[in-house]
Design a protein around this nucleic acid. Structure first.
Lengths: 255, 255
DNA sequence: ATCTGATGTTACAGTCATCGTAACATGATT
DNA sequence: AATCATGTTACGATGACTGTAACATCAGAT
């Protein structure tokens, strides 16, 4: 694995790395105080102060009058530039939007990042009751429809990524390792994944793989919807629409 | 002014600051090589390498197979979080969109950042010929409709921000200092600013101030359009619509 | 009003992370 | 081959960064 240790990666500048941690903490917890950051990251206050000053100097964070910090203008500039530079997101966004509009439910895109499932693009429909989704949210790879990404990895990598202790989100969460592996096999054969309340009781989620130019799975497109308004035929329809969307994204990536 | 020097700000971590420079360079110049960054920033290659490795380790940049760097997934997460945290952008975006849809032209939001005009939100209509706009683009404060922000600053601050040598973008650019100051006075009285080809020959741009809760000017809303399809009455209409949009944004900020 | 326990801030001296040099590796172009 | 780019590794010197300690400021409690 190479980077199995705590602070293993070589050639990483410690102070820069720590500053990024501060930045990401502010991203996750807006309107946070210096002391809270120091506590959460187990750092000293002077160090955090110096880092916040540096980040503020560049506009990445902004200090409010009340003394709390939140992200600043430079973070917006950065994110906008990133959206145009990360092919996957740039290509997927309009396709996700059309898909989501069509089914009038939440659609999103997930990738594997650091052994977790990470949401990097989304669409939410304009209706009162809808599934909330959040870019940047991380989820375990073994749960619900997130497991689709796991299913298309080599078995030995799967084994490494499935933890010894599987967290039981709901009564339907698959906690048995053997059952999970069998389910992964089934997903690979079916080419899509359906989760009926495995992570949240009342939610149904369908996922489908997005292929890169070389045929490898690089992401998943998902639709998530409240169970009460999602019939079996809806699920079937979603799977088909998702496969179509995934194909379009793949093509957009230069398949 | 306190921070008038070149590298004046105290308590700024040099290595973190330099790493941010690398990050922002990648944001501006996608698919850039290590050597080019080192050259552009006048740094040594090993230093840039260490910084890129650190940024890559956190997913802020991504190294392509060809050895070039571009922004990574974490930058997207960061930017999305920033959009929801920066009040001005969050509030302005939907209002900008409605405004832009209505006039079927490009609308954007600008603030003063580091003595320049910085674009932090935009809307572009879906039509073949439209004004291109870019979040993160910086423009001089004295030119075209960008000067609206300058107009509402105290006179002595204006004097500091107007450079000795004014760059002549077009034949219509106001290069005379006295004329510029007179124009700023006129803008303040009128409450809006019209630029007819002062920055780009064929463009008309109208701008209006956005007030913060305390009545200070914190941003400008602009509409930019090709001159040939923009009549004087259009300009008048834009000014009114802009004032309406600016008022809505101010209210959204808790005016 | 005084005390208490937070907060953010400054200063400083030690040391370790960070730096640049130099040497090497790799690949493209002549 | 030879040249001139590129990216990479190693290592010793040094100064940027660190934590400690002391101070400042504020809120709440007594």
């Amino acid at each position: 694995m190479g980077d199995s240790g705590v602070n293993s990666d070589k050639n990483v500048l410690e102070s820069v790395n720590a500053a990024i941690s501060v930045l990401m903490y502010v991203a996750k917890q807006p309107d946070v105080r210096l002391s809270e950051i120091a506590r959460a990251l187990s750092e000293t206050k002077p160090r955090i102060l110096r880092m916040l000053r540096t980040l503020e100097h560049r506009g990445l964070v902004r200090k409010d009058k009340s003394g709390t910090y939140r992200l600043g203008n430079t973070a917006i500039v950065l994110g906008t530039a990133a959206s145009t530079q990360v092919d996957l997101v740039r290509v997927a966004n309009p396709i996700l939007e059309r898909l989501g509009q069509k089914v009038n439910e939440t659609a999103f895109l997930r990738i594997i990042d650091n052994g977790e499932s990470l949401c990097i693009a989304k669409f939410e429909p304009m209706r009162d009751l809808r599934v909330h989704s959040l870019i940047g949210r991380r989820r375990p790879l073994y749960a619900g429809s997130y497991k689709l990404l796991l299913a298309f990895l080599p078995p030995q990598v799967q084994d490494q990524l499935i933890p010894a202790e599987i967290k039981k989100f709901t009564a339907r969460t698959i906690v048995d390792r053997a059952k999970l592996k069998a389910e992964l096999q089934r997903i690979r054969e079916a080419g899509h994944c359906v989760s009926q309340g495995e992570v949240s009781e009342q939610l149904v989620s369908v996922a489908v793989p997005v292929l890169a130019f070389d045929g490898s799975v690089i992401a998943s497109v998902n639709i998530a919807a409240p169970a009460f308004r999602t019939s079996d035929s809806d699920v079937q329809r979603y799977a088909l629409l998702l496969k179509d969307a995934a194909k379009k994204i793949s093509e957009g990536l230069g398949w």
